[in-house]
Design a protein around this nucleic acid. Structure first.
Length: 284
DNA sequence: CTCGATCCCTGGACGC
DNA sequence: TGCGTCCAGGGATCGA
């Protein structure tokens, strides 16, 4: 599952090799996940890739503009199973490859996505800004005070807030659970009940987890691969995610799983004590 | 504002 | 061996 560290790893891989390359042609497979397939096949050829940016879980390939027109960009979201790789044209395409972008150096930028939960759109800069305008802050560019301001007054459960891309952008289910475990906070705690010390622990935990995960090129739990086709290694440092029934690394209690905000949440019932009062709609 | 439910999609795990 | 069923989840959307 590509979250911030995985997308950052892909972005770095693409940034190392794509800028300056010109797009010769585009070939599409299944197109049901593209908002405008024709815009992509018509609009990409002839453009030069100028830069690669990540925003939350989105990637933007900035492209050369034609005669004073607004700057175009290819906006990409990897969804659950999306992979972007730069490979020699001679190499056979992997299964579920749905977008092939031919480059002027004999390589191809390929997008494969088994479940097609991803997105890809060719838009001008204003449209990209508009589309991404609702995103929250970059977790690694936010100081502790600003983090507290965003979280402290909210009534929602902390896990739901961490997953909400309008609050912080880039955190998904794995890194939310890993951060909450490190901060010793139960996923159903209401954000506004978190004490200052807990908020501080959570802020630090998020930073450490994301920074370390980026160093290790992300987590390959299912089929995540980076732009060069390599796996990440941070899954080796996972402490709770996917470890239901196994022993907590801190206290040896058994890791539990419950659904929070519609997603599986793994936590240690001992290190991350549940809130005492659960909200129940009063019913006469 | 916050919640749960629903949909999109495929492969892998599981039960019989 | 083979089939059916369930589940995983990012994000959008809808109704409560």
């Amino acid at each position: 599952m590509p979250e911030l560290p995985e997308v950052e790893t892909v972005a770095r891989g693409l940034r190392a090799t794509l800028p300056g390359r010109c797009i010769l042609a585009v070939r599409l497979g299944k197109t049901d996940f593209l908002d405008d397939p024709a815009a992509i096949t018509r609009g990409l050829p002839g453009r030069t890739i100028e830069g690669v940016e990540r925003r939350g879980k989105f990637l933007i390939l900035w492209l050369s503009r034609g005669n004073g027109a607004p700057r175009p960009g290819l906006l990409v979201h990897l969804g659950m199973t999306g992979q972007l790789m730069v490979l020699p044209a001679a190499q056979p395409a992997a299964r579920h490859t749905h977008v092939v972008i031919h480059l002027d150096d004999g390589r191809e930028l390929r997008y494969a996505d088994m479940r097609r939960f991803g997105q890809m759109a060719l838009l001008d800069e204003a449209a990209i800004e508009e589309r991404l305008g609702g995103l929250g802050a970059e977790p690694l560019e936010l100081d502790e005070r600003a983090f507290c301001v965003r979280i402290a007054s909210r009534r929602a459960r902390i896990k739901a807030l961490l997953l909400d891309q309008h609050v912080l952008r880039g955190i998904g289910n794995m890194y939310a659970d890993e951060s909450l475990w490190r901060a010793r906070i139960h996923p159903t705690r209401l954000a506004r009940t978190l004490r200052r010390k807990e908020l501080s622990r959570l802020y630090c935990a998020i930073r450490r987890v994301l920074e370390r995960a980026i160093e290790l090129r992300g987590s390959s739990v299912s089929d995540y691969l980076d732009a060069e086709g390599r796996t990440g290694e941070f899954q080796r440092l996972h402490r709770v995610y996917g470890r239901e029934g196994k022993r907590c690394f801190r206290c040896k209690a058994k890791v539990r799983r419950m659904t929070v905000a519609g997603r599986s949440s793994y936590f240690c019932p001992c290190c991350q004590p549940a809130p005492r009062v659960r909200r129940r709609p009063a019913r006469a």
